[in-house]
Nucleic acid binder design. Sequence first.
DNA 1: AGTTGTGAAGGTATTCACAGCG
DNA 2: CGCTGTGAATACCTTCACAACT
Lengths: 217, 217
Amino acid sequence: MSVNIPKPTAERLSQLARLLEQRKNKSMPISSAEIEQLTGWPSNTIRKDISTLDTGTQISTSSGYDPAKLLEAIRKTFGLSNMAFKCCIVGLGRLGSAFLDYGGFQESSFTLVAGFDSNVNRVEILKADFPLYPTFKMKEVIARVGITYAILCVPPAQAQATAEKLVECGIIGIVNFTPSILSVLPGIEVENVSVIDALGALNARLAANKTKTRSEL
Amino acid sequence: MSVNIPKPTAERLSQLARLLEQRKNKSMPISSAEIEQLTGWPSNTIRKDISTLDTGTQISTSSGYDPAKLLEAIRKTFGLSNMAFKCCIVGLGRLGSAFLDYGGFQESSFTLVAGFDSNVNRVEILKADFPLYPTFKMKEVIARVGITYAILCVPPAQAQATAEKLVECGIIGIVNFTPSILSVLPGIEVENVSVIDALGALNARLAANKTKTRSEL
DNA sequence: AGTTGTGAAGGTATTCACAGCG
DNA sequence: CGCTGTGAATACCTTCACAACT
């Protein structure tokens, strides 16, 4: 069931989940038109996306979707129902330490459970809701706690080496905040997060818009 | 010429540009096979992507592409040849201030030219290679300096309001690092950058891999 | 009424496979 | 000969339009 969700659909649904998590009014139905208004995606597409979920139970009324049920359906489809995936931050410089008090994890299906830095001093000074360790404890902690994903924030020069070490330790997915391009073993997934790429994407889209005739409202 | 570059192609080319910028060996030819090895995209696709660029001059030899020429062609196609787009950081908390010494902009077509924060104290204490201003100077500075893009790092609760203000000031593209979903006027582009989404994408891909039979090397 | 859900049509992007070039 | 470059074929995603449901 739900074997093949198109990648763009998966991305939209992930963001939709985040939107639902944040939404104030947890019980008021949300319509595809409202989602269009909030996100800019056509309501048609949204309905099609939602139709790829296997909901089991009834999810919509005549005035829209039940947000809680919709959120649950998305989570179930992506295999993140009840359990939260455990993540660690690697590299606690300015960028890495910014996540120590980042609120976004609160409602999500991911939790931060550890941070690592090679600078022992920094590990001791920084405060967080979860323990911070010097790098040499990485292997032990990742195995013991059962950490799945890593958020990589080390300096660019160390990125590739650190990534390899993380994979050795059992990490299967890396969110790469460094500007380095990582190459990893097959089966391991990397998601690159880069301001420069984001700016590039913006720019590409705006350049494309200029060419197009304005067929949008 | 080059009227319609597919969106996924544009994204890959943007990343390819970054890869070329970082590459040590600036003169050794790079082949589509090597790019495949580094990025995971099929070499076929890469060649197709590159073929959408209008290169003017010859860009490849029989052992691959000339990296400098390729980079130049990508930049030209995206309208960012010589000039660098001017960007500002809005919100200088932990996350925002992490960009003050982020190296990635060095080789790119984007430059940071200003930072803003509502906390006057913070503006005075932080050090950067470019000037920092209190928020109330935003309109004046953006207009005078000619800033195009903003990197939004304010607390989630202020995100939507700040975005609207930025648009009023003349910003046409926003890289949104807050977990809030922004709605903006048509013609304005937003690129969301979120750890949570990145983790979601990772997870979705890994879940999909499990279903697939391993047809990869 | 208003909204979802969905087959069918249309449009895009990727893959294939091989011609053409240095 | 290895590598690029590209029409043609395929696979994929989105849009449309309307039936079904509340």
